[in-house]
Design a protein around this nucleic acid. Sequence first.
DNA 1: TTGAAAGCGCTAACAC
DNA 2: GTGTTAGCGCTTTCAA
Lengths: 350, 350
Amino acid sequence: VPTIAEVAERAGVGVATVSRVLNSSPAVSRTTRRRVLAVIEELGYAPNAAARALSTGRTCAVGVVAPFITRPSVVERLRGVSRRVAAADYQLVLFDVERPRPLAELAGAGRLDGLVLISLAPSEDDRARLRAAGIPVVLVDADDPELPCVSIDDVEGGRLAAEHLLELGHRRIGFVGDAEEGPFGFTSSPRRREGAARACAEAGVELLVRSGPHGRDRARALAAELLALPERPTAIFAASDAQALGVLEAADAAGLQVPQDLSVVGFDDVEMARYAGLTTVAQPLEESGLRGAELLLAALDGEPGARRRLPLELVVRSSTALAGTGMRQEEAVRSDARGSHRQDGMLRLT
Amino acid sequence: VPTIAEVAERAGVGVATVSRVLNSSPAVSRTTRRRVLAVIEELGYAPNAAARALSTGRTCAVGVVAPFITRPSVVERLRGVSRRVAAADYQLVLFDVERPRPLAELAGAGRLDGLVLISLAPSEDDRARLRAAGIPVVLVDADDPELPCVSIDDVEGGRLAAEHLLELGHRRIGFVGDAEEGPFGFTSSPRRREGAARACAEAGVELLVRSGPHGRDRARALAAELLALPERPTAIFAASDAQALGVLEAADAAGLQVPQDLSVVGFDDVEMARYAGLTTVAQPLEESGLRGAELLLAALDGEPGARRRLPLELVVRSSTALAGTGMRQEEAVRSDARGSHRQDGMLRLT
DNA sequence: TTGAAAGCGCTAACAC
DNA sequence: GTGTTAGCGCTTTCAA
């Protein structure tokens, strides 16, 4: 593997000149530059990243910490980060954490210039150490008073879901979501529940809440509980699409037809939701990663942090229907001139 | 950020001693070690990775190149790699490539100790440059005569799928798969087709082949073609689960019931297949990544490369049935004492 | 416009 | 056991 010194010697110049060419400094004559470039090409030379990092103090690599890389929503966000980071010619160091770990352990100096955390809240200790190390951090799918972050309004999302069900005439509405405290000290489920509960309360309806650990199987069990109630709910809002699929399974197991006997609303709009025909509150997943990466890159350029709020949109598919009738909203809309959602562009029929 | 020199000074020792402690060399007295460790703790010192890499020539980071990080099968493999790599205290640099790119561009020296390629075949040029750079490479989900790799027997997989359909009595069998040349110069679809075609030929049945670019939508269109044939196939084998889902959609659009009117077999057994009740040829996806990482780690320790072949297993769910009857295999098995597959453990009923 | 040389923080000989 | 020191390959003053 050739070094800068060999290139310099071969080109009959000093190493500084080669370095200038490498970093496209204007202070090199055209002819010298050409000569150096020729030698670089000839030798197949590429600068050693470690040496460069040591010298400049910048690694041109950012870390991404994500829990459960298998969750489709996380993967889509990750992809967004990856694209943006690659476009800026940074490298992406991936940490797929299965349980909370001190971030400083991961982000040792000289390795990473910054950190993107997906669906994860850093501990007080993490914050302090990263600040001390001068490593900027941005949060994706998490909210924070002092860190740049990109998030959605979970309360509003819960409200969107509940209002959709209420407008369809449902009065017994269930909620299936995560336990209040996820393993990473963070979950958006409670806020989604809160939004839904508020909307229900305003309509004089009580939200029947069941929550437990994340996962489709768990959600299936919780939904089964709900469906076994004496006064069975006619609609269930799940805190995520994964959980909504569990609800669909529970309905199936209970011999209930969706949407005739039960309406189901999810959250996220992952690919599987599209396939399952699930009505859901869609959030721009890949874009969230993209924006997060953008904020981090900006921070690396010394720009001040900001918080981005991404828009939500209710996507109506075939898992929700008018209470009692089993009529799909699109059919209902024909005879129902209100179409209130239509006007603000929040409703999309598929 | 403290350096090794500050630690040394504060502990009243030389930098070499601190370095020895850091690298747990036995040549340090217990008392000195304790003192040094105390200072390290006190200062919150962590060695600079770039400096270490420059000095040792090892980065303790491996690269993973994967196309279409969104494909669930790729994600599961990636997760396997990630787990193994993390367990060995290596870092994982992720390259989510959307189109073929020279690998040398990514793996500049001083950044990566080795490379895992997922569902990707390196070009001749890539091989040469990586060999020159002394960067070991292992392939996951690809076969190669000269590189360590972990793969499956695609031909055998295709055969498993076709034999299942043949045993169910199907005589008009379709195949939906990828175009012969994927964008990355590599696709397993043709070999799966070949296995299926052979099994069919042995049974005196002709396989009706349709292939095009990857993707569910594309597969849906191809399946629609097949279903519009004068003599419509009663079964379709798709080269991947994603494509099989497209086939299911096409069947639905054509007003056909699965499995009564059409049996469908996929390949991979991604999570969605489980959800969709798809009969499929399962391969251990996460394990493939795990094994790949293991091979790379071994190579980094100077061990010779090897090739691992992972087992396949037919998973029968509810998308396949006896030709003409719509009876599920589990029902059929009761009256059909052969259960030939059963004996070699290749059949699993769910 | 160019070159010489001083670091960047660490490891690993080598000497004591 | 421990300290001194010479690199690792690059960037970046500082002179010329």
